[in-house]
Design a binder for these strands. Structure first.
Length: 189
DNA sequence: CTTAGGATCGCCT
DNA sequence: GGCGATCCTAAGC
């Protein structure tokens, strides 16, 4: 049972290696957040990735330095949070899809207008609403406030499956989850 | 439990 | 002009 710490996360690694390593870590934004229980990897050579067709104004942060937040607007309504991976210029990232709420429950309930803890952070749009992540966080480093990554207590069991909500590369198994967690956005098969 | 539709923004073809 | 790395609500089985 070796503790997993933020220092164990090498953001220069490929996103499909970083994504499972993030499972179990605690993510806080302004002191509000919880345990990461679901992630998805996206990479430059990946038709489902925003970076597939090269840099644009929207995805510029994805081509910036690793270990920073890439935040984009989804469907004109929601915000989605990614961690940038690989070397600057590569264009890879990990989407944070769900948390197990641990800190700032009342704040998250108020922001979400939702009491059920299982519906506070179970989905990328919900995570950003509960943690108040917006375009203002795009490009910020993850090792300084308002962001914080805390160590996991043990080595979590990670399950994998196909990614959600995409129309290309639908069979690539780059979705990762904490085994048995009730806080994932959708069950793993 | 499954499906369908609407909301609404920024970028791309 | 089209289309999402989504979410919520409502209706149908």
């Amino acid at each position: 049972m070796k503790p997993r710490t933020p220092a164990d996360i090498d953001f220069l690694a490929p996103s499909h290696e970083v994504a499972p390593r993030l499972i179990g870590l605690v993510l806080l934004v302004g002191g509000v957040g919880g345990r990461i229980v679901e992630t998805e990897a996206y990479d430059r050579e990946d038709p489902a990735s925003h970076s597939f067709s090269g840099p644009t104004p929207r995805n510029a942060t994805m081509f910036g330095p690793p270990g920073h937040a890439y935040v984009y607007r989804s469907y004109g309504i929601h915000w989605c949070l990614n961690f940038v991976c690989r070397e600057a210029g590569h264009g890879a990232g990990v989407l944070i899809r769900a948390l197990e709420p641990l800190s700032g429950l009342d704040t998250m309930r108020a922001r979400r207008g939702q009491q059920d803890p299982r519906l506070l952070c179970s989905g990328p749009g919900r995570v950003c609403q509960a943690l108040a992540v917006t375009r203002a966080h795009d490009g910020l480093p993850l090792d300084r406030p308002p962001f914080a990554l805390l160590a996991a207590e043990d080595a979590p069991a990670v399950v994998t499956g196909p990614r959600i909500g995409i129309s290309k590369a639908v069979d690539v198994p780059w979705r990762f989850g904490l085994s048995g967690s009730r806080f994932v956005s959708r069950p793993f098969r």
